[in-house]
Design a protein around this nucleic acid. Structure first.
Lengths: 204, 204, 204, 204
DNA sequence: CATGAATGAGCTTTCATTCAT
DNA sequence: AATGAATGAAAGCTCATTCAT
């Protein structure tokens, strides 16, 4: 499993010598804990995952989890904080006259940095903790906003009226976000490019 | 909350007089338990919902839950068994040349009988118990199958190639099924008719 | 299973007509409850036997048990009261010079009326309720007393001293009482006649 | 209460210093739990003894019991495993011509290492768990086998025929095993030496 | 900082007992 | 008197959290 992570947030960067070594060790344990939690939360859900299981999978003693994360919920919060990221200001690479390509690039350059597992956690645990729901809302909003904007640029003639464009943007965001869930739960794989092409075609 | 239910399965039908009264009382308690569980499972998830909460919301003593459902998981299984229903053999009301209308009718006459809450439960707890996942899989499969079939009938000229039609059917099923989740989690309402219209348009 | 019972204690004997019929029905249910309890208490012990199991085996509704026996312990007490019986005053059929035959007859004409199951219950549940322990004590005492007396008569010359005779009587009582337990638990069948013969022989 | 224990199984043997101290503490808690359970199971029976009572008597918190013994039955199994021991291969110290002394030595060097309480538990809970019954069967079998063998050696002339010798061996085993039960339940003390002397005498 | 035994609140579940019919 | 649904106290067990080492 390879995760994109953004800002470990512990600020060990400047340390030197022995301290650094120890820091690395600690960071490793913390990372392993989060890795394990990510896998287990995505698989069985937050409530059904015991800290014991996390410790076992992370190969750390149980007490160490509570040293890094005083309460169980802090593990989830840390995952959401550190392993999902919505790039809100990024440029949309829209090409006028090519809505399909524009959406495809949007799908690839998704302003969401999150592993498939994290996306499942986001949805599954949206009610569990406010920060998860807030993050998910921001994410979906940004996706819709960007899809709307990109389609507006790609379709200068505005063939599709505003309402239809809104539906297209919403659907696009929904399918991209739920992609992993759909695949996992129903077995149906969804190709973002095909979705982009289909939605683009509906607006021409 | 108003649920469509299909065969309470108690077989009281022929009873009369006093026996009937008793039956009603029993059914009420059982129904209240399922009502409460449906609401709570949908809101907080199965694992995070204690039987005590169900009992309180249903206004029944705790022991009564286990009289009707020996184990907690049996409540979930009963909900899925009795409150979701996939009509597998139903006719598709397809009109050639009118794919949008055909999909709209399909969306309205969805072969899924399940409250919004039940749909959330289906997704959320798909991993919790085999029967939930199986039901969800059957449901999605039937939806895709019917959408595919309806679109084939509605578009006799087969303008869209098979692959695109498949994507359209899959997306249609996904959006319909996830509808509630999307609305709840992201706040974006999705109108099935608009989706039908968009997808139909993409295939013409 | 056929039990010897002594004094049903309900005093239905004199009733007539409808009352009698009803009495018979009641007594049947009560008897079936005790039969079932006897079998289950002997097999699994008092504490591990649920009243539900008794009701099921007796084929009576659960509520009926508590009509006849307000508390669960009352079933055990009734069993001990009605289905074990120590005839304290009975004559000992002793033949001088034939200690083996005397003991054999004593074993056969045991002043204990109790099914094998009841004997197991007596031992197993001796600590559970005072009345059970008291009954077991009385029973053993009577057996020892009679064996002692019988051997005294059968061995007029008093070849064995008093101490040895006491040991013989105690052993004889013990083996007779524990017989069922030993057989059930260890699989070793014990023949009372052989025991009588052996003990008699040891005293000659 | 002093127990002979055989292989505590913790493997602390090689530890030193602080680790050793901790080991002692742990072992103490576990031992106290088993001590308490032994006392309570012997007194009230397994089913009627709550884990709470064990915890109170052992002066440990309730959760600690389940840390050492995940399920209640595991406490019983551990007791039987660790606190009863049947020495199956031991030599029988038989002296030809002295059956009484031979049996006495056999009674004293009983191939069962178990406290009086454990012996009561063995009998009382033989039906509760397979491992208990198996242990009891092995024990009785070994006792009978040894008594038979010892008597065969002690009585070279084989005055008693095989059948009588078998009865003698069985009785000897039964009385030795049930000794505690008899004493506790009936108040009659049984002296193994007297039993040995009596049985030996019956075979001469 | 690291460890895992210790702790107890709180969960599911059981079941004797009650009670309306 | 008969019935079985209802009731809740109490059991076994789980597991997040604490804490001594």
């Amino acid at each position: 499993m390879l995760h994109q992570r953004f800002g470990g947030g512990q600020g060990w960067s400047g340390r030197r010598g022995r301290a650094r070594v120890r820091a690395v060790v600690i960071r490793d344990a913390r990372t392993r804990i989060l890795d394990a939690a990510e896998e287990l939360f995505a698989g069985s859900g937050y409530a059904a995952t015991q800290t014991t299981m996390i410790a076992r999978l992370a190969m750390v003693p149980r007490g160490l989890i509570h040293r890094h994360f005083p309460h169980k919920i802090d593990v989830l919060v840390a995952l959401v904080d550190e392993r999902t990221y919505v790039e809100e200001g990024r440029e949309v690479d829209a090409v006028p006259g090519d809505p399909a390509g524009t959406l495809s690039r949007l799908a690839r350059g998704l302003p969401l940095r999150a592993s498939p597992a994290m996306r499942r956690i986001l949805f599954r645990e949206a009610e569990t903790h406010g920060s998860v729901k807030e993050r998910l809302g921001r994410l979906n909003g940004e996706l819709v906003r960007r899809a709307r904007f990109a389609l507006g640029l790609a379709l200068p003639g505005a063939r599709g009226d505003a309402a239809r464009l809104e539906v297209a943007a919403t659907m696009f965001a929904a399918v991209l976000l739920y992609q992993e869930n759909l695949c996992q739960l129903t077995g149906h794989q969804i190709d973002p490019d095909a979705v982009a092409e289909l939605i683009a075609h509906s607006l021409v």
